[in-house]
Amino acid sequence: MRVLLDGLLRNRKALVGAIILVLVLLAAIAAPLLTQYDPSARVGRPHQPPSWNHLMGTTRIGQDVFARLLYGARTSLAVGFGAGLLITAVGTALGIIAGYRGGKTDEVISFLTNMVLVVPNLPLLLVLAAFIGQASPFVIALILGLTSWAWGARVTRAETLSLKQKDFVKAAEMIGEPQWRIMTFEIFPNLISIVGINFIGSVIFAIITEATLEFLGLGDPRAISWGTMLYNAQKASALSVGAWWEILIPCFALALLGLGMSLLNFAIDEVANPRLRTGNWRDRWILLARSGEGRL
């Protein structure tokens, strides 16, 4: 854990990713301070291009795009992190239980996991959302959490299997620790980097998928989120009438948040898997080789 944090603090990708995430977070929290407009109210004439009054223009029904963007960030982040947490919790728990208990338990969980992995995720979500009707962001987070844990479970299981053979687990078994204690206090702490990658990957997935479901018209169109912004803009043919701001601005917001989260993810991957790391030594090596101090 310490090593992981230490490594992350010194990683450039992690730094940039964290800065992006914090900026979006601050913008979401401080939304009422940054704009005077109500995000769902009609506050201007339709399809106004960006101006001093409306920094990012207005939508077809005259809502302020900047205000919607700021308040929408709250939804995207909440759904992303909420669903991400749920996905990770379910995946990690199932993975550890399957890997550690083995036997029948493992067979059942693995079968389920593999099953979920071969049923295409987006089409399944489309069907679920369609039957729920106009799904609120909260409901979307919930169904994401319940349908998307399979990848995490598989990876966690594989790692648990190898941890199970380690001495400290054997020692804990020897002194008769109960299974749940071994799983929570011996195995889980050693999976922390996998859990981290799983969590951030799940957050990215949830943010993207929420936006996609809403864009496809399965969300609640009155909710204020980046996905519904895209949906309303697409329905208003924003691009063909030249109102690019209505569509490109939530696009860039999604891209930026996705980028920030991915950078964090790659950083954890590098810190956890030393082979992928391009450390400081490379610069030092090149310097020495160039100055003729050594060769290969």
Partner: peptide, 22 residues
């Protein structure tokens, strides 16, 4: 690759259609 993988397909599509289509 980090850029390409982190941008949602919806966003990439919309940007491409905006730039090259419209």
């Amino acid at each position: 690759a980090i850029f390409a993988t982190s941008v949602p397909a919806v966003v990439t599509s919309l940007i491409v259609v905006f730039v090259f289509g419209f």
